[in-house]
Design a protein around this nucleic acid. Structure first.
Lengths: 156, 156
DNA sequence: CGATAATATTTGCCTACGCAACTATTATCT
DNA sequence: AGATAATAGTTGCGTAGGCAAATATTATCG
């Protein structure tokens, strides 16, 4: 597709996705706040650590996974560390590197957030999709995401 | 769908949309900044005014359309007004109401932003969808959005 | 081996934006 | 009409997060 060619249908798809995303996102954040829980950025970071082997990641990797800039991640990790949800560990083999490691308390918090987050995803998003549509959305947005993976920048 | 029932497929759809949205959004914002252009929040507000009959809207309506809180919109309008892209007009029939009205200079700025925005949508988003998929995405996210329209809150 | 470049993280500074409180105006109730 | 409630917008204040510069460490090149 040429860079200046954007069919009306595709533009409409973008617009719908754009506005619906913001509304769903705001609704979920609002539910979390109402339940006295931390916001999605905390969840994202904790969850990425939860998935990581050994429950730890380098700061830079975590920044990428958690969709933050490096400086943004540093501040977030400061707060998570102050709450003892993660801890920083210097890397023995490379003095420049810090690892963020999920604590048991961090796992607990993940488990507290998830029911509210899941209910929000269900109510605001999933309730409007049937099974086939969900599969298609996952596939389509998987493709879109793959076009922008940080590692794909090599061929730039 | 029960609020605690979230099939794996639907969750995967959410995750893909979530991360791909943030990446595409960041890429477009980055392109705009690199071109010395204002960010999408400016575009959104100006464009909503452009669409509105008479090219003006009440502050509250504009806040909804532009996906901002009322206070956030007030600050944004302050900046747009300072750049003469819009102007505030008191409503003659209701002293509480202010209208934001798009100026010709505002239209010009919209026209400057659009090519870069369009190229970003095309490259990062639309290039990965065929026609049928685009139609489906528009329809699905239209449904999702409809579930969260501010006006739909009445039945709450 | 020493100078220079590259890399990982942090810090200074700035902007965007939300919530709650405030002001001004209009609607409602008696 | 007068008191009270509702509504529209703005402002005070706080937090999140980005960019560019600073720092610390490691890799590379002569």
């Amino acid at each position: 597709m040429k860079p200046n060619s954007l069919p009306e249908t595709h533009l409409e798809a973008w617009r719908m996705q754009y506005t619906s995303f913001w509304r769903v996102f705001a609704a979920i954040e609002s539910d979390l706040a109402a339940a006295g829980l931390p916001s999605l950025s905390w969840y994202d970071a904790l969850y990425e650590l939860y998935l990581a082997p050994g429950r730890h990641l380098r700061m830079g990797q975590l920044a990428n996974s958690a969709l933050l800039s490096r400086s943004g991640l540093t501040r977030l990790v400061d707060k998570l560390e102050k709450e003892r949800l993660i801890l920083r560990k210097a890397c023995p083999s490379d003095g420049r590197v810090q690892h963020a490691e999920l604590t048991d308390k961090g796992v607990e918090v993940l488990r507290k957030i998830w029911p509210v987050y899941r209910a929000g995803i269900t109510k605001y998003f999933a309730a409007h999709l049937n099974e086939a549509e969900a599969r298609q959305v996952a596939e389509i947005f998987g493709r879109i995401r793959a076009g922008l993976e940080p590692t794909a920048e090599a061929g730039k």
